[in-house]
């Protein structure tokens, strides 16, 4: 049985970790890019960002003072039991957000969209967002927090099957070029691309692809994996680098997630995470033990299942999955 206090204290811990410590996979990605980046100004930006990550970890202060929109992704094991139920978990996450905002401190970013008033704690109507998913045959819960800025670097477009892969490439370039200028997208970033589903699904998948998969991770579908690498290479051949300066470092990695969609359409979303890529995950076991990590491991085989049954039965119809 997992109790309220354990959840709240673990959530405060990941809030702090996400805000202060750059995930090692992303750091490695930027270190690698700094080695080949030819643009002098772009390279200066990458090196300065590494200085910034060191300063944040040494001083235990946030990497970026723009808190973004702190939020949570919760994966619940099918056999997990929560002492205060699911609403108790939501309350623990709201409480942890408010406390972390004061204690770290984080900038209270969340305001009412019309009246612009705030509660000085990053809590409000529909904030923080909590996305749920489930995992069969386990009794733990995984909680991931993501602090991502929200003003630039993301776009949605309804494409059609006839627009093809070229249409996706073109839209991907449009997003990078338009928001890359002056560095509004805070690149080089992990780019997430959602393809398919309904419009809202497309947006959710793209955002999760950007924020919940680590640099170097590939989609299990080999053809999608190849497209990920092709788009990454394409983004890094624009001639633009960090802050929109001349260079090539735009895309630290590219992740694609898909959902079955309307037979007539091919909705696409493109999301840029940022130079702070703030995410951290905790697994809370049934006995209350907490394990902290940087890889959210959000897209499990179960999440990407394609058939009614789980586990997938090994029949001809599903052999290619």
């Amino acid at each position: 049985m997992i109790d309220y206090q354990t959840i709240e204290s673990a959530a405060r811990q990941i809030m702090s970790q996400a805000a202060i410590d750059i995930p090692p996979d992303y750091r490695q990605g930027i270190e690698d890019m700094a080695k080949w980046e030819q643009g002098e100004l772009s390279c200066f930006v990458l090196q300065t960002m590494m200085d910034n990550w060191n300063a944040a970890s040494e001083d235990r202060r946030p990497m970026c003072a723009d808190t973004g929109l702190p939020r949570y992704y919760v994966k619940v094991g099918n056999d997990a039991r929560l002492a205060d139920g699911f609403t108790g978990l939501e309350r623990a996450l709201r409480s942890a957000t408010a406390k972390a905002t004061h204690d770290i401190p984080l900038r209270p970013n969340r305001v009412h969209p019309l009246w612009r008033n705030d509660h000085n704690n990053n809590i409000g109507i529909n904030a923080p967002e909590i996305d749920w998913s489930f995992e069969p045959d386990v009794d733990w819960i995984d909680i991931t927090t993501v602090h991502k800025g929200g003003l630039f670097g993301t776009d949605y477009r309804m494409l059609f099957p006839g627009d093809g892969i070229d249409g996706i490439k073109r839209f991907f370039l449009d997003t990078l070029v338009s928001f890359g200028k002056r560095g509004l997208a805070c690149q080089p970033a992990i780019m997430g691309i959602g393809i398919g589903g309904s419009k809202d699904t497309t947006m959710v998948l793209g955002k999760q692809a950007a924020c919940l998969r680590v640099v170097g991770d590939r989609n299990p579908d080999p053809k999608i994996a190849a497209l990920e690498l092709e788009l990454k290479q394409l983004g890094n051949s624009i001639g633009m680098g960090a802050m929109g300066f001349v260079g090539n470092a735009m895309v630290a990695d590219c992740h694609i997630e898909v959902g079955f969609t309307h037979t007539g359409g091919m909705p696409v979303s493109v999301h840029a995470f940022c130079l702070s890529s703030r995410r951290a995950t905790v697994r809370i076991h049934a006995d209350g033990r907490c394990e902290y990590r940087h890889d959210p491991e959000w897209f499990t085989p179960y999440m990407r299942r394609e058939t009614v049954e789980w586990p997938i039965e090994n029949t001809d119809a599903t052999a290619s999955v």
Binding site: T48, N52, W53, M63, D66
Partner: peptide, 14 residues
């Protein structure tokens, strides 16, 4: 003057 990055919050905080 433009900030660098963006997001050198910790360096500026120092």
């Amino acid at each position: 003057l433009t900030t660098v990055g963006y997001g050198t919050g910790a360096l500026l905080g120092r």
